[in-house]
Nucleic acid binder design. Structure first.
Lengths: 214, 214
DNA sequence: GCTCATTTAGGAGCGTACTCCGTATGCTAG
DNA sequence: CTAGCATACGGAGTACGCTCCTAAATGAGC
């Protein structure tokens, strides 16, 4: 028994691993094409399964729900925008600029795919299942929140700040506004033009509001 | 022809109107009892129909979806809390107190029914159907937002305020935070205790942030 | 190569929100 | 009271996300 335990080390080069990888790839491509082509709601899991040439049962072995399929696709896009945002925020003059530079790529992506963004936001906020892709999405957002928190912390080192202020809490309010504005815009309830201005204004007020009024 | 047009005035005393009213009442009570008794997700529309003693087809003539059924129930509760909040906010000393007094009853209600609140928030934010009860819910929230806007406007009259500040936009950020915190708490991701403090702090920062720093 | 154990595949089947349309009920005119 | 019309009712049927269980594929030991 113990001798076979050694073979538990995952071998990635077997037929099995390759098949799995292939199927995952096909499913990813099918979901990606369908979701970005026609919106989330008009795509059925049957369609994805057929296009990926797998059974429906198989599909749900690779993503535990239809929503997870979307997260799988969106995460990949978010991976790029996050990296981009972090990079661009480093050489910003003011904290306002830094935060806006950080978030700009996410906003841009969101505006490009409104319906998928709405579902993405919905699943982030209201999803209960602890699937692989949802976990990844949450991690990515936490990253961004921490980045904003760090920018605020740096600001706090060069300015007199009110004592009882929780900087992480402050960072969260920025994201509350971001989430809500993204939802509004992605569902067509608000002009995309206003989003950036609203967010910038919130940050502006926030920075002034946390200063110690001597 | 024109003479019959007079009869278009809705007569509320016919058998028909009474039947309709009765059914509506039964459906309301059934939905109310089931949703508050066990959570939203474990209630099926069949159950509601049976308990109300109507067919499923009939049920969907009175509420266009399961979510609308919940909104129907929650709206009624919100009607009371809104009135209460508005009343209590009038004799508050500071704008902070006024806003918090305004929102306290809503928060209290939300904490009492976490699961239903989560669904309520989800439908408010992401619902697309233009059902009767959703419209009503949105109107109720607009009311509250306007009330916050008014409190800020009064504050602006007795203090020097930065020029380029949009008070309604500022009011919206308060609600962004409120929505997000309610979601977090109602899904059990955050301690209910912190909600009020977080919100109060946001308002605090906001009020300082919109002041003109001479 | 052969056998056995374990992992993976997939499609028939299920639960549930919602619809469709034939039937019943109430209203109005004559 | 009756006929004709409009409205309301309700349950069989549908769509779709997801599960369950049998069968197939793979790899290990000999």
């Amino acid at each position: 028994m113990e001798s076979t335990a050694d073979s538990r080390v995952p071998v990635l080069n077997g037929r099995r691993a390759r098949n799995k990888h292939d199927k995952h790839q096909r499913i990813f491509e099918a979901a990606s094409a369908l979701f970005t082509g026609q919106g989330y709601s008009s795509v059925t899991t049957q369609m994805v399964a057929e296009r990926a040439d797998v059974g429906t049962g198989t599909l749900f072995r690779y993503a535990s729900s239809k929503a997870e399929l979307l997260l799988m696709v969106m995460n990949e896009q978010m991976r790029l925008t996050t990296r981009l945002g972090v990079a661009e925020s480093t050489d910003a003059a003011s904290p306002n600029d830094a935060i806006m530079a950080l978030l700009q790529p996410q906003i841009h992506l969101s505006l490009a795919f409104p319906e998928n963004t709405a579902v993405y936001q919905r699943e982030i906020l209201f999803g209960t299942e602890q699937g692989r892709y949802r976990t990844e999405a949450l991690a990515r957002i936490s990253e961004l929140e921490d980045a904003v928190g760090n920018i605020l912390a740096r600001f706090a080192q060069t300015h007199r700040i009110r004592k009882d202020i929780d900087l992480n809490g402050a960072a969260r309010t920025v994201f509350s506004t971001l989430h809500m504005e993204l939802i509004r815009v992605s569902l067509g309830r608000q002009d995309p033009q206003t989003l950036t201005a609203t967010l910038a204004s919130h940050i502006d007020v926030l920075l002034l509001g946390i200063l110690d009024p001597e």
